[in-house]
Design a protein around this nucleic acid. Sequence first.
DNA 1: CAATTGTTTCGATCGTGATCGAACAATCAA
DNA 2: TTGATTGTTCGATCACGATCGAAACAATTG
Lengths: 226, 226
Amino acid sequence: MKEGPNIAGIAALIGDPARANMLQALMTGVALTASELAQEAGVTPQTSSFHLGRLAEAGLVTLRRQGRHKYYNLADADVAALLEAMSGIAMRAGMTRVRTGPKEPALRKARVCYNHLAGEYGVQAYDSLLARAFLVEDGEQLHLTGDGRSFLSELGVVLPDKESKRRPLCKSCLDWSARRSHLAGIAGTSLLSFFLERGWAKRVDGSRIIEFSKSGDSHFHAIFSL
Amino acid sequence: MKEGPNIAGIAALIGDPARANMLQALMTGVALTASELAQEAGVTPQTSSFHLGRLAEAGLVTLRRQGRHKYYNLADADVAALLEAMSGIAMRAGMTRVRTGPKEPALRKARVCYNHLAGEYGVQAYDSLLARAFLVEDGEQLHLTGDGRSFLSELGVVLPDKESKRRPLCKSCLDWSARRSHLAGIAGTSLLSFFLERGWAKRVDGSRIIEFSKSGDSHFHAIFSL
DNA sequence: CAATTGTTTCGATCGTGATCGAACAATCAA
DNA sequence: TTGATTGTTCGATCACGATCGAAACAATTG
């Protein structure tokens, strides 16, 4: 009777509070164990295991075993993008959490999205690279130009020699707070770790917030001026 | 304890099969009455009313009363984009409907996405306009150039004189089948009705499929060659 | 080897939410 | 007015799925 893929399936999967909390926790990009996710969602390890099984079965998360632990991650950037988009709609609908703490503005400013930089800082970096033609959009594809490659390399951002088909070097990701694109893909990941390794920015506890230091802030604006 | 908007809320909303069916039916872009949606979802009018109340409350659908009818629509293109993105994930996860009829290839070829053209034809039109610089991407923004405007106008596609802030003239929308962008926004809507009014393409029953006539097909490829 | 920690399976419970029957309200056509 | 169509509200039912206790299983450490 109906055509098209089964939307209700994955929606119901994300629709459970426990699973939604787990997925949001994984949006930080760090791999988490089953028990850590259980605590994050506020459920016992047994139920956590049950939920993770379903999420993995549906291909929303991946896991790699390491010793007696199982580390979980979001399957890929597409899933992260879906969650990010859903955040946008949820926020617009006024379905903000009861507990809307003081962290909110910090989240808008700079946060991690799966494994790359999002928020105001994320879109500024994206726009800046685009304005100087270091980055060009081609349909849905996104390419780093030769100039762009040398620019980033000279800064100290490590990049692979050649593009791979499976994991694109550059990819745009829609930002729920700014409603603009920011840089994802390998380059996006490298860029974030570039700032983290230098101590110019650091992650806050278990949240998605990224805090720039005073010097890190000025460095950022020097690099990504508009 | 948690930060960020409540994803589980809207996900759970979409997660119910009846509501998901309703939303997918609304993806055709046509306004449907409460009882039509009830039949579409395979539930009684009472439950339909219940579900529509929740969807409207969450801002996923809008309604306008007309006589003793209530016509429902998707709230806006953002909601449509979310559903489209979810289709992509669901399809990749192999969660296709049991009833995967012969309509599928037709759906991939050309279909309506909320109110504009999607599928292979949609992305081809998009790429073609982009290649001739009739359309330019600027960050997340999408602009119609002067040449592009006159090109479309001379064809007979009606466009408003000036851009409005609320409803952008051009907007890109991610295609779940092709994984590429196609044209949304006012221009996307006008383009679709351009083909429909001329009889070059027509909609199939209550589905999202758009069927091009023989002459409509050649016209399309003449206009949007690559 | 035992002891500890992490994860899963099983079984049972329990609450939430979807569903429908029936009655009610509103609109339109005579 | 009466009758027909459309939509909603209320109440009760009922099934599905989330949850946890208990126990088994797996892997590491001492």
